[in-house]
Design a protein around this nucleic acid. Structure first.
Lengths: 345, 345
DNA sequence: GTGAAAGCGCTAACAC
DNA sequence: GTGTTAGCGCTTTCAC
């Protein structure tokens, strides 16, 4: 254990500046109501001593932590294949950093790990939580609700029960899906298949709904459920080709799925987009730009969504610097999507 | 702001159990030296009240935080394309969780952001740090050294200056590279190219060294520097094909690079592995299994490396439960690699 | 506007 | 073994 010199305390700063601890504290916290000369002296003392406030002591009295938990409720491997989460994290990190909040990462490690996360959240160690990738049966929202931790969800949570006051950030999955199908039909395609995501997630369910909006009387055989992974996309595509070898387009629920589908189509000797047009969802660059051919896809601004989640939470927490640029109570946001044309459709 | 009921304090627990605060504290912290009946009573009180220790109050006196910072010093986009970091995070998270430590994620947001991270680390908000993907000119090690925060690095840091006491976890990049080349020569290939990673990172430099160990008198034209990204791999592969259209094998410094190279090779009409054998490094499944053809690669156990980093740090911090299963001072570890044969070589 | 003083909830000596 | 007590470093009334 390194024997670090003890950090200077506020006391030391106050002494050096020749003021009381109270005044030093005021300056450190913005300096409102302290006369200029004193402010300057304290600032200089802080500088010279390299003073950094002790967050524990501060939290003890303020009951705030300036820390937010990011919960990734995906025990499975998806998180580790999809740049999606990394991008959201980036957006979240930027926003939190800009407002001096720390990011405590909570990865759900398995089926039985929700309790631990719930306990942590209930423990009041963080001011709020940002929660991702809930599935329908997830116990987390319940635990969170119970713990009373201010929370913003990534993606519309579906507690069909109600509790519509839940704050979330999502993209317009349904309209995005419609746009994808519209594009395909615009290309003259008529036998359009859809490979869904896991339907216990609202994002996947909404995209399916959007697909159906446009293809109300399509052959139900043309829809197959999958899981947002490339391997799942491959399996689904094989199934689809078996059922309807004459299909001429595929709308995959995300880019990873599309990548898998593309591979199977190539194996089967079909040309993309000539024989089969393919369109994805997300526009995760490392995937969409790297497929063969590059993927036409529905773009959502993932990093921005992360940023918005953080901002919403900070507002909810009454963070001044964030609250001022928007009036009224924070409310959920649904971002629009845009179609990005590349070569696959 | 939700008006949560104030959390019960130790005081409340003690009162309910009919003991002093000190005894209640002892029980909460393991219960050593407290007689059984009392232990039970306190435990019950904790249970009934739903008591959770106030971490801020605890830290204030213990000067420990049971929290570790994970610093990702990659301002660029690589983090978001490569499942590498996500996998390490997973390993780290598991180990930290197992020992009741929290993970505070610090993403370096840009070229000028090191100072912020340094300040945070110096602020004594965490007990230690886990630091990734340093580049040669990175100011972070200096800042960390200065701050005196116990740290374990992911990948051997290169401060050619010395300070060999730095703790790190790495895989045997050099021997792994040798193994890759050995495999290629074993396949009868003689004109073997190498696409490196960014050579200001030791992992990339070590792999290059390993390559040179085996190919001492190869045409220097056969080595081209790249950046661990698919796009970089493509560029490098094009360059290589221009310089030496007769090459018959490529050792790419990581899987992502190999994926890019594969694409260019295909475009150029070459068959893999018949015309050109390709081998990667990492064995990141979502990449290596999904390339066309599936990638032969040098595997490193990324998640395990994450776990080891966390364990090492915890030991360094004197964490009891971790210290006991290994004697002596913790020291850096270099894990072996293994060759995974798939179709590309 | 500034300072004095009272804790925030907890652990760790130190008595008993 | 168990209780008493003294802070940890900070913010925040409340006087002045």
């Amino acid at each position: 254990m390194t024997d670090t010199a003890p950090r200077p305390t506020l006391e030391a700063v106050a002494a050096r500046a020749g003021v009381s601890r109270a005044t030093a504290s005021r300056v450190v916290n913005g300096g409102d109501g302290v006369r200029e000369p004193l402010v300057a002296r304290v600032r200089r003392a802080v500088e010279e001593l390299g003073y950094v406030p002790n967050q524990a002591a501060r939290s003890l009295v303020t009951k705030r932590h300036d820390a937010v938990a990011v919960v990734i409720a995906e025990p499975e491997t998806r998180v580790f294949a999809d740049p999606f989460f990394a991008l959201q994290l980036r957006g979240i990190s930027k926003e939190l950093t800009a407002h001096d909040n720390q990011l405590v990462l909570l990865l759900v490690e398995g089926r039985d790990d929700h309790a631990r996360v719930g306990r942590y959240l209930a423990g009041g160690h963080v001011d709020g939580a940002l929660v991702f990738s809930l599935h329908l049966d997830d116990p987390l929202p319940g635990l969170i609700q119970h713990a009373g931790v201010p929370t913003v969800f990534g993606g519309r949570p579906d507690w069909s029960g109600g509790r519509s006051e839940a704050l979330y950030v999502d993209c317009d999955n349904r309209e995005g899906a419609r746009e994808a199908v519209r594009h395909l039909t615009g290309l003259g395609r008529t036998r359009i298949a859809h490979i869904t995501g896991p339907l216990d997630q609202t994002s996947a369910a909404d995209r399916l709904d959007g697909f159906r909006d446009m293809m109300a009387d399509a052959d139900p055989q043309l829809v197959v459920e999958s899981d947002f992974t490339p391997a799942g996309g491959e399996r689904a595509m094989r199934e689809l080709l078996e059922r309807r070898p004459d299909l001429d387009a595929v709308f995959a629920a995300n880019d990873l799925t599309a990548a898998g589908a593309l591979r199977v189509l190539r194996e089967s000797g079909r040309r993309v987009p000539e024989d089969v047009a393919v369109i994805g969802f997300d526009d995760v660059l490392p995937v969409a730009e790297q497929t063969e051919p590059p993927l036409t896809t529905v773009r959502q601004d993932i990093e921005e969504m992360g940023r918005l989640m953080a901002r919403l939470l900070l507002r909810r927490l009454g963070h001044r610097a964030v609250a001022e640029d928007a009036e009224g109570a924070p409310s959920s946001v649904v971002l629009p999507t845009t179609l990005v044309r590349r070569a696959s459709a």
